[in-house]
């Protein structure tokens, strides 16, 4: 390729329409807006700093000091969040996948009403869900003497409630595009119902399954309002721990543990890209709500 002479280059730059420059400029601005907080958290976590100017971006004294200072409460909160998110996503599968299959394939009337009921938790503001579950647990406790607020099970039930609609949404989306002839072929060639499901249906709907699970996981992992109302002192999820940390006493080690979470999310996303491709992740999200 011929190297451009300076005047030629100038002409070429000048000939880009203003509208295009504006468009790309605006998009870049939007990207900076979206990603800046994450870059800043990661960057500031590397700054050692003195006692008084602990948080600084860009970092001037590079060090991994704060990574060694992550308190035990953070690790506990992280493992609680992780276990909770994993289990609620797994249970959301057990309930969401059959529900999606039933919704798409059954021929009963009033399907849109059933679908609305199953997806309703997604429309309820999470703080309302938190309050409603708290009151429900109180009442249940008053009636049976068994109080589940502040317990793992109590948190799990509420997170599951919020997570199920995501699995239903994504799996319904892939099932609607599913070619039923594939199953008919398997059945007519002598495969059993279960074998057909495992070997034909499941592989085809897998992108929706992965996507739904990821949404359920992330919604649970990032939730503050529900977990805040349903957890007990000393038994909090990671986002709630961060929330209190930001409101009350600030410990810069928060930066370090947050950065670990950012990288974890990045890794999960790369894994998703390898497994199903990002477009599939988005496509199956088409009918949120």
């Amino acid at each position: 390729m011929k190297k451009l002479q300076r005047p030629e280059l100038l002409i070429r730059v000048m000939s880009i329409p203003v509208s295009r420059i504006l468009f790309y400029g605006w998009c870049s601005l939007a990207y900076i807006f979206v990603l800046a907080p994450l870059v800043i958290v990661a960057g500031a976590s590397l700054h050692r700093g003195s006692r008084y100017t602990v948080v600084q971006f860009p970092p001037t004294e590079l060090s991994l000091y704060w990574y060694s200072q992550i308190p035990a409460t953070h690790w506990e909160a992280l493992s609680l969040s992780f276990g909770l998110a994993l289990l609620s996503a797994a249970l959301a599968y057990c309930i969401g996948i059959p529900a999606a299959l039933g919704l798409v394939r059954s021929s009963i009337r009033g399907k849109s009403l059933l679908s609305a009921i199953l997806r309703a938790p997604m429309q309820i503001p999470t703080i309302v869900t938190g309050l409603a579950f708290l009151q429900m647990y109180y009442l249940f406790g008053d009636l049976t003497g068994l109080y589940i607020n502040g317990s793992f099970f109590g948190l799990l039930l509420a997170h599951l409630f919020v997570g199920i609609p995501y699995v239903i949404g994504t799996v319904v989306a892939v099932l609607q595009r599913f070619d039923n002839r594939l199953e008919e072929a398997a059945l007519s060639l002598g495969a059993s119902r279960w074998r057909t499901f495992y070997r034909v249906t499941l592989p085809v709907i897998m992108p929706g399954v992965y996507a739904g699970g990821l949404y359920a996981f992330m919604v649970s992992f990032g939730d503050v309002p529900i977990s805040m109302l349903l957890s007990a002192p000393g038994f909090v999820t990671y986002p709630v721990e961060l929330f209190y940390g930001l409101e009350n006493d600030f410990n810069p080690a928060v930066l370090a543990s947050s950065t670990l979470v950012i990288f974890l999310s990045l890794a999960v996303m790369l894994a998703m890209q390898k497994l199903i491709g990002l477009e599939n992740l988005l496509r199956s999200d088409g009918n949120r709500g």
């Binding site: 979206v34 994450l38 990821l214 986002p239 947050s258 950012i262 990002l278």
Partner: peptide, 16 residues
């Protein structure tokens, strides 16, 4: 870039 930022807990973004 967008998907990552969607999935990261909002507390962390507010922190930034």
């Amino acid at each position: 870039g967008i998907v990552v930022s969607t999935f990261i807990a909002i507390v962390i973004k507010v922190f930034g």
